[in-house]
Design a protein around this nucleic acid. Structure first.
Length: 572
DNA sequence: GCCGTTTTCGGCCCGACTGTTTTCAGTCG
């Protein structure tokens, strides 16, 4: 039983208790415990073996008992009893935006509606508006909510949301009544997919700002409009929340709207213990009622007794505790990156010539760049055969003599074939500076088979890096069925580097795996997999993944200067 | 249900907006 499976059961218990109308704090206790377990760095079974379950924050007598039971039997009695009592459909209904546990219960108690389908029918036939506390508008909002989850709209690539948000920030900033406009929310935390765009605006005249904002042509629908907060849906379907605050509240508001909710909650309970109330306007001293308007987020953290925490790790996965012990990671930065080790040229399916790529990399301030075109079996990408690769090596040799200020490394993205073998023999691979190995075929194979293919590749002494290890495409293709725990172990044993692929629709490995890999002492390489020179700029997405994964400069090999990098690559 | 550098009992983050209400509950982030 894995951590996330236990967390799931605890979340489900919380959901069912909520529908039953149980004590709010009891519900929260289950959610807290689930969140902690979900983000545990180690296998929960290990804690059980050490009899240390209760050392997990939020796990006490009752919940630890249930965890023991779940580990032993796969489930627990309390969970089964709740499932028998609360229809599954009611829990599903919690996913409908605008509809919560209280109203779900009213609907169920009065009309015995226990599925989203029945709910939609009842709403369309105007039955819901007859119930206490539900009127025409709520009924309409339930219909909209159901349509929204059916359309699966709601998650957007970071890159997509970021460009929309940046454009809006530019236009908001140019309004005369606006002092400052900034991106907040999960977008500022650089989550790989975001559900909405949070924008924070500093102004003394919120009404003017709101009026101008609502005239933006891409707005399809206004969901909420108050004196400080406006929510809209754009034509693209993405929701934008605009919050307007006065200048003195900017820093408190930025912290509040950057979140995450869990991070904020933890900070506020901490504040309370110090006799302070933290909200989006400032810090209030509960003794004398005096309000402090902090000048920066850093000042707020300082007030709470800890150093600044970067937005990327504000997820309540241990960052507050680490900050209080002054053991936060010294997070890797974009400027630490000295080269890119996975790039395609026009020799295979890329667009730019090797020279163009090298010059572009030089312009970015890189020390080195690796050319890693596809290997021969990947026909669709015009993969290189031995002969063509040999000619490419000669060209790279010539270009290195011709171009100053950047080193071009020879390389290949060698296919891990369906039959376990690599697409080139070792006598070819050992001639190259960088060998990146990856899977492009046989995605549907069974777990053991795919995992075995990757582990076999790790065991090859010529393979330096495993590229896009899980093969996922965000929002389009699930990862292939691979046991990443075993892959991480294999990398650790064979001194193989894992890639953090920076392509915005890959981000593979993700932040959580990166953090696990670091815990095992693995090295990672942040690469773009660019197919045109300009896309070398995508490296920032990979750096954000690394930062979210608590990585430091030393965890990332392409922060090394050229000579050290070569030594590292040759050390396997 | 959990927790304690005031506490083993009595707290538990905070505020905005909407809709259905005659003063507030539900939902959200």
């Amino acid at each position: 039983m894995k951590n996330h499976e236990i967390a799931y059961i605890l979340y489900e218990i919380a959901n069912m208790l909520e529908i039953k109308g149980e004590n709010f704090f009891k519900i929260r206790a289950y959610r807290n415990a689930a969140h902690e377990i979900e983000n545990l760095a180690i296998d929960i079974q290990k804690l059980v073996n050490q009899n240390a379950l209760k050392e997990i924050d939020g796990v006490g007598e009752a919940i630890s008992g249930k965890i023991y039971e779940i580990l032993e039997k796969g489930t627990c009695r309390y969970y089964e009893e709740l499932k028998a009592e609360v229809p599954r459909g009611l829990v599903d209904m919690l996913k409908i935006p605008g509809l919560g546990a209280k109203r779900i219960k009213v609907i169920y108690d009065n009309l015995k509606i226990a599925s989203i389908e029945e709910l939609e029918k009842a709403a369309n036939s105007k039955q819901l508006q007859t119930l206490p506390g539900i009127g025409v508008k709520t009924e309409q909002s339930i219909i909209r909510g159901i349509q929204m989850i059916k359309g699966r709209a709601g998650r957007y690539l970071l890159s997509t949301a970021l460009s929309i948000a940046q454009d809006m920030v530019t236009r908001l900033s140019s309004l005369p009544s606006v002092e400052k406009a900034q991106i907040a929310g999960s977008l500022r935390r650089k989550k790989e997919m975001v559900g909405d765009i949070d924008l924070l605006v500093v102004s003394n005249s919120h009404q003017q700002v709101t009026e101008s904002f609502l005239k933006f042509p891409e707005i399809r629908e206004v969901i909420a409009k108050g004196s400080t907060k406006t929510s809209v849906i754009l034509e693209l379907g993405i929701q934008v929340d605009l919050r307007v605050v006065k200048p003195e509240s900017f820093s408190a508001a930025l912290l509040h709207f950057t979140g995450s909710k869990e991070h904020n909650t933890k900070l506020r309970s901490l504040a309370l213990r110090k006799g302070l109330r933290l909200n989006e306007y400032g810090i209030i001293n509960l003794d004398d009622g005096e309000i402090i308007y902090p000048q920066s987020e850093k000042e707020i953290y300082k007030e709470l007794g800890m150093p600044y925490i970067i937005p990327e790790i504000r997820e309540d996965t241990g960052e507050v505790e680490a900050a209080m012990k002054d053991s936060l990671p010294n997070s890797v930065n974009l400027k630490d990156i000295k080269g890119d080790l996975h790039v395609h040229s026009n020799w295979s399916d890329g667009v730019s010539s090797i020279e163009e790529i090298a010059l572009y990399a030089k312009k970015l301030g890189y020390e080195y760049i690796a050319i890693t075109d596809h290997s021969k079996s990947l026909k669709i990408a015009r993969g290189l055969d031995e002969e063509k690769l040999k000619r490419q090596l000669e060209l790279i040799y010539e270009l290195n003599k011709k171009i100053d200020g950047i080193k071009i490394l020879s390389g290949i993205e060698v296919d891990i074939l369906s039959n376990n073998l690599l697409d080139f023999n070792d006598d070819i691979l050992e001639q190259l500076d960088v060998v990146v190995a990856s899977i492009h075929t046989g995605f549907k194979q069974e777990r053991d088979k795919i995992t075995g293919r990757i582990i076999r590749a790790c065991e090859n002494p010529n393979v330096d890096i495993i590229a896009h290890p899980t093969g996922r495409l965000l929002g389009r293709r699930a990862p292939y069925d691979v046991d990443m725990e075993l892959v991480l172990q294999a990398c650790a044993q064979t001194n193989t580097i894992l890639e953090i692929n920076s392509s915005p629709d890959r981000l593979d490995i993700n932040d959580k795996l990166a953090r696990k890999a670091k815990a095992l002492g693995l090295k990672m390489s942040i690469n773009t997999d660019a197919h045109v020179a300009e896309r070398l700029n995508d490296i920032k997405y990979g750096v954000w993944v690394a930062r979210r994964g608590w990585l430091e400069k030393d965890d990332v090999i392409n922060t090394l200067p050229f000579e050290c990098l070569l030594k590292e690559l040759n050390s396997k």
